[in-house]
Amino acid sequence: MIRILLLIIGYIIGNIETGYIFGKLNKMDIRNYGSGNAGATNTLRVLGPKAGLIVFLGDFCKSLIPCLVVRYIFRDNVSLSYMYMLYIGLGVVLGHNFPFYLGFKGGKGVASTAGIIMALDIRIAAVCLAAFIVIVAFTRYVSLASIVVMIIFIGMSHLLVKTNYGFANGSSPMEFRLLVVVIGFLSIFMHRANIKRLLSGTENKIGKKV
């Protein structure tokens, strides 16, 4: 029941669609422009760097803060605190990607997943950030960088699970592993159209005017 409750709470929080709200403040529905999603990258393309940063921070914090709160509440059981943190984080990403009041058309969950990664392990977050910056700098493809970051997140989480996150005492980390895979591949799934465009060479590069 706690797991389900955390998913529901996370989903409700995730429905705070920063990009949509910021767009409405500028008298527009951001989903009708650019790539058609309500995330930070599309906001960056349509409304500029300042707007993109604001939306990114909003989507980042709406998962980071609940994840840290859950970790603190259940701090007496380390492995369970990380597990529950992933549940509320997954709920936030689902709410962000599929907001019920917007016809289930939201963003792609990259910024919100980044908040989960930061709450989980600052080492993984640092590697993911470095990889993201390098890939964007050399290719100018935000989508490619986002996909690679999710793969790094999944891989490093699996490598560290036996010596971190409270599972070293013999308890099974299988549920933890599964949640990490679901969260990571959910974002990759949301980039399926981008993957097709990357393969065909028609993907938009960052900085391209909309």
Results as ranks from 00 to 15, higher is better:
Leu186Tyr: 12
Glu17Phe: 00
Gly170Arg: 03
Ala40Gln: 05
Leu68Arg: 07
Lys162Asp: 15
Leu6Gly: 10
Val134Asn: 11
Ser187Thr: 14
Tyr72Lys: 14
Tyr72Pro: 06
Ser171Met: 07
Gly89Tyr: 01
Asn26His: 15
Met174Thr: 14
Phe56Met: 14
Leu64Arg: 02
Asn97Pro: 07
Val46Ser: 02
Ser79Phe: 11
Asp121Asn: 14
Leu90Lys: 06
Ala130Pro: 00
Pro99Val: 04
Pro66Trp: 05
Ala111Tyr: 02
Tyr82His: 10
Ala137Cys: 06
Glu203Pro: 08
Met83Lys: 05
Asp76Pro: 03
Arg123Trp: 06
Gly95Asp: 04
Pro99Gln: 10
Arg123Lys: 13
Ser146Met: 06
Phe60Trp: 07
Val142Asp: 01
Thr202Leu: 11
Ala40Tyr: 12
Arg140Lys: 15
Ser81Cys: 12
Arg71Ser: 15
Ile206His: 04
Gly23Arg: 00
Gly91Ala: 08
Gly91Met: 06
Lys62Ala: 01
Asn26Thr: 11
Phe98His: 09
Met83Asp: 06
Lys105Ala: 02
Phe153Lys: 02
Gly107Phe: 01
Thr139Tyr: 01
Leu94Trp: 01
Lys205Ile: 12
Ala40Arg: 08
Leu94Ile: 15
Gly170Asp: 11
Tyr141Leu: 10
Leu44Thr: 11
Val210Ser: 13
Val161Gly: 00
Phe56Ile: 01
Tyr33Trp: 15
Phe100Ser: 13
Leu64Tyr: 04
Asn26Tyr: 09
Gly14Lys: 01
Asp29Gln: 08
Leu160Thr: 02
Asn42Arg: 04
Ile13Ser: 06
Ala126Gln: 10
Arg45Asn: 06
Met1His: 12
Asn32Val: 05
Thr113Lys: 10
Thr163Arg: 13
Ser171Cys: 02
Leu102Cys: 04
Arg197Thr: 04
Gly23Trp: 01
Lys105Asn: 13
Ile16Glu: 07
Ile117Ser: 11
Leu178Cys: 12
Ser171Ala: 12
Leu80Gln: 12
Ile9Glu: 04
Ile65Trp: 08
Met150Lys: 05
Lys208Met: 11
Glu203Asn: 05
Tyr72Thr: 15
Asp59Gly: 08
Val93Gly: 02
Lys24Ile: 08
Pro99Thr: 12
Ser187Cys: 13
Gly106Tyr: 00
Gly95Cys: 11
Tyr101Glu: 10
Val70Trp: 02
Ser79Tyr: 10
Ala137Phe: 14
Gly39Glu: 03
Tyr101Ala: 03
Ala126Lys: 05
Glu175Gln: 13
Leu7Val: 04
Arg3Lys: 13
Ala130Lys: 00
Ile206Met: 15
Ile4Met: 10
Asn164Leu: 05
Tyr20Val: 12
Ile117Gly: 00
Pro49Glu: 06
Lys62Met: 13
Phe132Gln: 08
Ala168Asn: 13
Pro49Asn: 08
Val93Lys: 06
Asn194Tyr: 03
Val210Thr: 12
Ala38Ile: 04
Ile21Phe: 03
Leu47Val: 03
Tyr82Cys: 04
Val210Glu: 15
Met150Asp: 02
Arg197Asp: 07
Ile188Phe: 02
Val142Cys: 11
Phe60Asp: 07
Lys108Trp: 01
Asp59Arg: 08
Arg75Val: 13
Asp121Phe: 11
Gly95Gln: 03
Ile21Leu: 08
Ile117Asp: 04
Ala51Arg: 02
Arg140Pro: 09
Ala131Gly: 13
Lys108Tyr: 03
Ser143Val: 03
Ala130Gly: 15
Leu120Tyr: 03
Ser187Met: 09
Arg177Gln: 15
Leu47Met: 15
Asp59Glu: 14
